[in-house]
Design a binder for these strands. Structure first.
Lengths: 216, 216
DNA sequence: TGTATAATGTTATAAATATAACAAAAGAAA
DNA sequence: TTTCTTTTGTTATATTTATAACATTATACA
């Protein structure tokens, strides 16, 4: 069994989203060519990506939207219910807690921890925000394999140490602390907004430098 | 002048962050080998990346941290002041508005627009939240080339149309609407949190499937 | 029932990216 | 001053990734 490249994996959520759109539009079948068009990709790449996991289409017909969506969902493991805790109930933490539909993304939010006493005790999505100090008490009676970290870099390392000691190995990390370097046996997905904004800045300048590349 | 690949560009913010850390630790010089270690990269890649833009090091010595940081800052264009508007002052918009240090990232937040009348009129970082309806009035007296979109997908398309009509060409987009497909002459940097979380889900499952790859 | 068409699955090629190798240059020490 | 060490800048190679080509298979229609 050949290793699936990270580039393919990162495209799977986009396939899944587009297929969800198509499904809600009532479209029943789709060809690799049309799927490539919505993905801004090529038919070849679509077929190669999908065939990493199996032959989901039918020659001469194409792919059944609902079936392909469901298969990609299975590949991503969205039917899972990874119990997770959220560290940080500031604006970002609250945005994550209220907006993300964890149940359809393979996770279940079990607890929220926060340092700020003004926020502790409030409710988010029916979950009471607990104090940072209660983490160990929570894990004594509950399980969680995943943590979502929406905290500034400086305060995050001791918390990661504690979570790691409690068995948490999966991290959705919005901080700049390099978890994977300290704990190589973890799975870490980073969301670095400042990096993203710097990249935007570069690309704006780059475009302005080459104002007219229609004829390149 | 050869085209710089997007992979190189996406590494620049990380170099910049690590160099900032080194600088604040009082470290004055760094070799490509050591920089590669903190980047979890290779010395070859570090040198090739940097040499896309010029020879910033000295043979036999290495790179001067402050100089290299400053050069990468210039490459990224962080000294710019792109005037920007924020669309959406929900939890995510507030998180962005309060946490991001736009001034050191090449942007200047000029205005915030929101639909929810309960939020309109409140202040974020000293900026009064205005109504969506006031966008055109604002642009009549102010300029902005960039928009940060922290809104759900369904409400975003008409707003993008209006912003595009007003001359906005750069988008930091947290929604799932595909701006670049509709307006190919824009620069769009997407932050797709649900995609990121799905990727995490896949990688957790993948790791659990292959529990022991220490001997691979 | 047979043939034409459409579109996949798969193999082969091209392009892009990362790694390795090495020569050149600067600084340190003898 | 000369040599040795360090480490860059750059060229060459290997690997990975994306694209293109093609043979196969299912469906639709005559």
């Amino acid at each position: 069994m050949k290793e699936i490249s990270i580039q393919v994996i990162k495209r799977l959520p986009r396939y899944y989203r587009f297929l969800s759109d198509l499904e809600s539009q009532g479209i029943e079948k789709i060809s690799s060519t049309k799927l490539a068009a919505v993905m801004s990709s090529t038919a070849s790449q679509v077929r190669q990506d999908l065939n990493c996991f199996g032959g989901f289409g039918q020659q001469g017909y194409g792919y059944t939207v609902s079936n392909l969506k469901s298969e990609i969902g299975k590949i991503l493991g969205l039917q899972n219910v990874h119990p997770a805790v959220l560290l940080g109930a500031g604006n970002l933490g609250r945005a994550i807690a209220t907006h993300m539909n964890f149940e359809s993304l393979g996770f279940k939010l079990k607890a929220i921890f926060e340092k700020d006493t003004k926020i502790i005790g409030t409710y988010l999505r029916g979950i009471k925000v607990l104090s940072d100090e209660d983490i160990e008490a929570f894990f004594a009676e509950n399980e969680a394999d995943t943590a979502f970290l929406t905290l500034p870099k400086d305060s995050v390392e001791p918390l990661i140490d504690r979570l790691y000691a409690l068995g948490v190995r999966n991290f959705w990390n919005f901080s700049h602390f390099d978890i994977a370097k300290k704990y190589p046996d973890t799975v870490v997905e980073n969301v670095h907004m400042t990096d993203s904004l710097m990249t935007l800045c570069y690309r704006i300048n780059d475009k302005e430098k080459q104002p007219d590349d229609a004829n390149s």
